[in-house]
Design a protein around this nucleic acid. Structure first.
Length: 325
DNA sequence: TTAATTTGACCGTT
DNA sequence: AACGGTCAAATTAA
């Protein structure tokens, strides 16, 4: 690459600038690390912003063509001093989310059933609780919570808990060959699978339903940003894996996780490979009556799942696999 | 009629 | 005692 460093900016001044940039980057990284510890949707939003700042800072540093200590920002997570969490009792409350993301659509390839909604303190928007539709069917323990994003009401903060153990075609996260994240299906082998394993994506009846109105408006542009019709073959919602940070400046889908370092360290930020979206959109638009509740899960796919003769007991579900002393 | 959503009550955790 | 997660009866939609 053309060195050209000296011609535009005097080396001395460039060094000073880089020094400041480095400090700024470190500060931003620390702030982000702090935010990660907060389990707040606003914090998540702030992280997104900080990611952008970090990217810019890195770019600026690169532009100055100075290699300012690549160690730069260290995550410093698990704040040994400032963030001492209590205990992690094995209670229903402290089930840690396997994934958390800000998204514009509620559609994620799985079929959910809402079982509750609560007003949350200090939050203008209620939180909705969903569980996998196949909980009663197959005892699938996956759950998710959805809440409008406070800084940007057109988006949602979706937090996932547990993994899908159901075998319904519509809920099987197909394997992402790119990542090679196979194996998942293994532990659930004992289940009979109907129909073709992959090809049968029921591309939702997206039926352009898209631009319906109000709420939907802003989401359409969002979808477009996410690459439109990403082949349905990779809707892998990467459970627990979470190693990607989607943060194209235009704003797209990002995963909030504790992988601060990944972003901070490198200038070039990842690219989104798999948008866990199927091009369905309905979701957002349809709901909305008077109350500020969430739209029902757009599960228009009528899938008959084979009954697997008694999986487990059935009723007392609720506590997933946990035994309360 | 069945299935999904709504909504207030209940209960465990903090 | 407050808050948040879940239950379950009532209601609505398909």
């Amino acid at each position: 690459m053309a060195a050209a460093s000296g011609s535009d900016v005097p080396a001395a001044r460039a060094a000073v600038a880089v020094n400041h940039l480095t400090e700024a980057r470190d500060g931003a990284a620390r702030l982000r690390a702090f935010l990660v510890q907060l389990d707040d949707q606003r914090a998540a939003w702030a992280q997104l912003e900080i990611d952008g700042v970090l990217t810019k800072l890195s770019s600026a540093m690169s532009a100055l063509d100075v290699s300012a200590g690549s160690d730069g920002a260290r995550p410093q997570q698990s704040g040994s001093s400032c963030g001492n969490k209590r205990k992690q009792s094995s209670s229903k409350r402290s089930q840690r989310p396997s994934d958390k993301k800000i998204t514009a659509t509620l559609e994620d390839g799985h079929v959910w059933r809402k079982y509750g909604q609560k007003e949350i303190q200090y939050s203008p928007y209620p939180r909705s609780y969903y569980r996998c539709t196949h909980k009663s069917d197959q005892g699938c323990s996956a759950k998710r919570q959805v809440q409008r994003c406070e800084p940007d009401a057109s988006k949602y903060v979706v937090t996932y808990y547990g993994e899908h153990t159901c075998r319904d075609p519509s809920t099987i996260p197909l394997i992402d060959h790119a990542t090679g994240a196979l194996a998942e299906l293994d532990h659930a082998n004992n289940i009979i699978s109907f129909g073709p394993p992959s090809g049968t994506n029921k591309n939702a009846n997206a039926a352009g339903a898209a631009a319906s109105n109000g709420a939907g408006a802003s989401s359409s542009q969002y979808l477009q940003a996410m690459g439109g019709s990403a082949a349905a073959d990779q809707l892998s919602t990467s459970w627990c894996i979470s190693d990607n940070v989607f943060s194209s400046s235009a704003g797209s889908l990002m995963q909030v996780d504790e992988l601060i370092g990944a972003v901070v360290g490198s200038a070039g930020v990842v690219t989104s490979a798999a948008a866990p979206d199927r091009g369905v959109l309905g979701g957002v638009a349809s709901g909305g009556r008077g109350t500020a509740s969430f739209p029902p899960s757009p599960n228009s796919l009528g899938f008959v799942v084979g009954s697997l003769g008694g999986i487990g007991g059935g009723e007392d579900d609720d506590d997933m696999f946990r035994l309360d002393p």
